Amino acid sequence: MEQGTVKWFNAEKGFGFIERENGDDVFVHFSAIQGDGFKSLDEGQAVTFDVEEGQRGPQAANVQKA
């Protein structure tokens, strides 16, 4: 798993971006967030995640709040 920081996340649209430790950004969809209840992330929040190849390039999977 990688570690990163939430760059931004739009809860209304259900997606955002995580900044990886290497400085690259990776797309995150709310469906990739682990846990119960409303799935959202806060700007600046530390997270761990896997990276999978999506239809439009790399995207975060198995996102967990650190």
Rank of each mutant, 00 (worst) to 15 (best):
M1A: 14
M1H: 13
M1G: 13
M1Q: 14
M1S: 14
M1T: 14
E2Q: 13
E2K: 09
E2P: 05
E2G: 08
E2N: 11
Q3R: 15
Q3C: 11
Q3S: 14
Q3P: 06
Q3W: 13
G4T: 00
G4K: 01
G4E: 01
G4F: 01
G4I: 01
T5G: 04
T5F: 13
T5A: 07
T5P: 02
V6F: 02
V6D: 01
V6M: 04
V6Q: 00
V6C: 07
V6I: 10
K7T: 04
K7P: 01
K7D: 02
K7W: 03
K7N: 03
W8N: 03
W8C: 06
W8V: 03
W8T: 03
F9H: 02
F9T: 02
F9Y: 10
F9N: 01
N10S: 13
N10L: 07
N10Y: 07
N10P: 03
N10F: 07
A11M: 10
A11W: 10
A11G: 10
E12W: 15
E12Q: 14
E12D: 11
E12C: 12
K13Q: 08
K13G: 05
G14N: 03
G14S: 03
G14W: 02
G14T: 03
G14V: 02
F15K: 02
F15M: 06
F15I: 08
F15L: 05
G16T: 00
G16D: 00
G16H: 00
G16N: 00
F17A: 03
F17G: 02
F17Y: 07
F17R: 04
F17D: 01
F17P: 00
I18D: 00
I18K: 00
I18Y: 00
I18F: 03
I18H: 00
I18G: 00
E19Q: 15
E19P: 01
R20T: 08
R20N: 06
R20S: 07
E21M: 13
E21P: 15
E21D: 13
E21K: 15
E21N: 13
N22V: 14
N22I: 12
N22M: 11
N22C: 13
N22L: 11
N22A: 11
G23A: 11
G23H: 10
G23F: 08
G23V: 06
G23L: 11
G23I: 04
D24R: 15
D24W: 10
D24E: 13
D24F: 13
D24Q: 13
D25C: 09
D25H: 11
D25Y: 11
V26S: 01
V26R: 02
V26H: 00
V26G: 00
V26A: 03
V26Y: 04
V26I: 13
V26P: 00
F27V: 02
F27K: 02
F27N: 02
F27H: 02
F27L: 04
F27Q: 02
V28Y: 04
V28D: 01
V28E: 01
V28Q: 00
V28C: 06
H29L: 05
H29G: 03
H29N: 03
H29C: 05
H29A: 03
F30L: 06
F30S: 07
F30H: 10
S31V: 04
S31L: 08
S31A: 07
S31W: 06
A32R: 05
I33C: 03
I33G: 02
I33L: 07
I33Q: 02
Q34C: 06
Q34N: 10
G35R: 04
G35H: 08
G35K: 06
G35I: 09
G35F: 08
G35N: 06
G35S: 09
D36W: 08
D36H: 12
D36C: 10
D36N: 12
D36S: 13
G37V: 05
G37T: 06
G37D: 06
G37W: 07
F38M: 07
F38N: 07
F38H: 10
K39R: 14
K39Q: 09
K39E: 06
K39H: 07
K39T: 06
K39W: 06
K39P: 07
S40H: 13
S40P: 04
S40V: 10
L41Y: 03
L41R: 02
L41H: 02
L41G: 03
L41F: 05
L41T: 03
L41V: 05
D42K: 15
D42Q: 14
D42F: 15
E43S: 14
E43N: 14
E43F: 13
E43K: 15
G44F: 05
G44W: 05
G44L: 04
G44Q: 05
Q45V: 09
A46P: 11
A46D: 09
A46M: 14
A46T: 11
V47S: 00
V47R: 00
V47F: 01
V47C: 05
V47H: 00
V47M: 02
V47G: 00
V47P: 01
V47L: 04
T48K: 09
T48I: 12
T48M: 11
T48L: 12
T48D: 05
T48W: 14
F49Q: 01
F49S: 00
F49R: 00
D50H: 12
D50M: 13
D50P: 00
D50E: 13
D50I: 13
D50A: 10
V51H: 04
V51T: 07
V51D: 02
V51P: 03
V51S: 04
V51E: 04
E52T: 13
E52W: 11
E52H: 11
E52Y: 14
E52L: 12
E52M: 13
E52Q: 11
E52P: 03
E53Y: 13
E53R: 09
E53Q: 15
E53C: 10
E53F: 13
E53V: 14
E53D: 11
E53A: 11
E53K: 10
G54F: 06
G54W: 06
G54V: 06
G54Q: 06
Q55S: 13
Q55F: 15
Q55C: 09
R56T: 07
R56S: 09
R56M: 09
R56V: 08
R56H: 12
R56L: 11
G57C: 05
G57Y: 05
G57T: 04
G57Q: 04
G57F: 05
P58D: 05
P58N: 07
P58A: 08
P58L: 12
P58Q: 08
Q59V: 11
Q59P: 01
Q59I: 09
A60K: 00
A60N: 01
A60S: 04
A60I: 02
A60R: 00
A60L: 02
A61I: 13
A61V: 15
A61E: 06
A61P: 02
A61F: 11
A61C: 08
A61K: 14
N62Y: 05
N62P: 01
N62L: 05
N62T: 04
V63P: 01
V63K: 00
Q64E: 07
Q64L: 10
Q64W: 11
K65T: 10
K65N: 08
K65G: 08
K65M: 10
K65F: 10
K65I: 14
A66C: 10
A66T: 13
A66V: 15
A66W: 10
A66H: 13
A66Q: 13
A66L: 15
A66N: 12
